[in-house]
């Protein structure tokens, strides 16, 4: 097997990289693919918590790289999806514990075992990020419709473009969009962000309180029905698998009659 290694990155912290990684992983696994989630945020690991697997972590990525254990020993199988595994980051080390060469070797090994290898990169553009993208052929850039996040995403895209030989394609996910705010011209729309960044869109995820609830439960929203963010992540997974899936209609009119008239008169472009 020669799987696809996809790095999830953003530049700015707190835009939902780890949440997106977990959900894309779960959504891909739900389509039947075998998936490995790799937490490259060494020293500040969180992916295990989002997946609800923190109590099962015995070995980690650094243990594998430093040959204290076999790769298979370090992979933690998901509670619900047997075809989904997590390779946790080390908590008591820092990002210098792994270098780009080691990461490439590791990704190669993972590609032989899984159809998809999703790498959650740390925030920033320094060595941690450089190592995270070292073994990847594709990138998913996460960004929220805020100026600081867009600027950092632009920087990341510039760095990814500079490595065209390795990173064959990169696509954008606009996270935490609030249709109401876009409609009232208080927030940049998805098209605004795309205009600015000139990049291919992979998906749009609405702001959703369910994300907080799911994080607390350790069960990513993509695994549960009837959440809008979960559906958005499942669509992203289908697009990653090459399906043509239309963007979510986020324009659900809610509340008072004035809002509905406004929506009708001025349909929001997200």
């Amino acid at each position: 097997m020669s799987g696809r290694v996809i790095v999830v990155t953003s530049g700015k912290g707190g835009v939902g990289k780890t949440t997106a990684s977990a959900n894309i992983g779960v959504a891909l696994a739900n389509t039947g693919a075998s998936v490995a989630l790799v937490d490259m945020d060494i020293g500040l690991r969180n992916l295990d918590i989002l997946m609800g697997l923190e109590n099962r972590v015995v070995y980690n990525l650094v243990d594998v790289v430093e040959e204290r254990c076999k790769l298979r020993q370090a992979l933690v199988r998901d509670k619900r999806l047997p075809n989904l595994s997590l390779l946790p980051a080390a908590q008591t080390r820092d990002k210098t514990a792994v270098n780009a060469e080691q990461m490439k070797t590791l990704c190669q090994e993972l590609r032989n075992l899984f159809e998809f290898v999703i790498v959650d990169s740390p925030a920033g553009i320094e060595s941690g990020f450089q190592n995270a993208i070292a073994g990847a052929q594709e990138a998913v850039v996460i960004c929220t419709p805020e100026m600081s996040a867009v600027r950092d995403a632009d920087r990341i895209i510039g760095l990814l473009e500079a490595r065209k030989e390795e990173i064959e394609q990169y696509r954008l996910v606009v996270n935490r969009i609030r249709p109401n705010m876009v409609r009232n011209a208080d927030m940049m729309s998805v098209n605004d962000v795309l205009d600015i960044l000139s990049v291919k869109l992979l998906g749009v995820v609405p702001e959703d309180e369910e994300i907080i609830i799911s994080t607390n439960k350790g069960e990513p929203v993509a695994g549960t029905d009837n959440t809008r963010s979960g559906l958005a992540f499942r669509n992203i997974a289908r697009r990653l698998r090459g399906e043509e899936v239309p963007l979510l209609d986020l324009d659900v009119p809610n509340g008072n009659w004035l809002n509905r008239i406004m929506t009708f008169l001025n349909p929001v472009k997200v």
Binding site: M147, R151, A185, D186, M187, M188, I196, L265
Partner: peptide, 28 residues
């Protein structure tokens, strides 16, 4: 439509977009 978009040009959304576009030319 025009009526509802009248004050769009100085909305937070458009201000953000304009500022972003100028800033990113310099950044890139």
């Amino acid at each position: 439509n025009w009526f509802f978009r009248l004050n769009d040009s100085d909305s937070a959304r458009n201000t953000a977009k304009d500022r972003m576009q100028k800033m990113l030319v310099y950044d890139r």
